[in-house]
Amino acid sequence: MPVSKSMQLLKDDLWKNNPVTVQILGICSTLAVTNIFLNTLIMGLGLTFVTAFSALTISLMRNVIPPRVRMMVQTLVISSYVVIVDISLRAYVPDISRALGPYVGLIITNCIIMGRMEAFASGNKPLLSLWDGVLSGIGYSWVLLVIAFVRELLGFGTVLGIQVMDPLIHGLGYTGGWVQWSFMIMAPGGFFMLALFIWIANSVSGHKLTHSGS
């Protein structure tokens, strides 16, 4: 695995060409669970696992897949790994699995995975593809984890389920507890947080958005 190329991927996937803030791909399946940090973490891990191993598998098979059925094979490989994730979650963390509901299955239609298969894994060596898969997964997860952290903190006043805002307010000498921003837990909170994140990310990196007109 050439070192310079893997370092370039590291930079690209985590920030410069981040799947969420720059490519705006695949937010559907995960944005929905960002009102609780732990759920987002589990989803992020699952998605990284699926992306990495699908990339490895597709890359290993890249010379034997007939071009005409390429998409179908990719979808089948991805869904097989999603089945593994789903069954493992149900066995080891049944409560979280129930809370995530259909969103684990929806990893299949997450455009990031398909995008990486098409753009990278079907044309690169297995190890490099695995590395790219892991990095894309992480690049995607960290953005959503930041969003989840803010939403849970403001919405419930908690971090990882532990109440932190109440003691903070008492510590500052105020009476009463943290007033929960129930808005943050609901869908609009998710949309606004993502918009805010993209806004900040674009301002910091000074991206020229070439792919979008308006």
């Binding site: 998710g190 949309f191 606004f192 993502l194 918009a195 993209i198 806004w199 958005l209 308006s214």
Partner: peptide, 13 residues
Amino acid sequence: ALRGPGIALIITG
């Protein structure tokens, strides 16, 4: 920095 997806997400919200 808000053009494109950014403003679209705010409207969606």
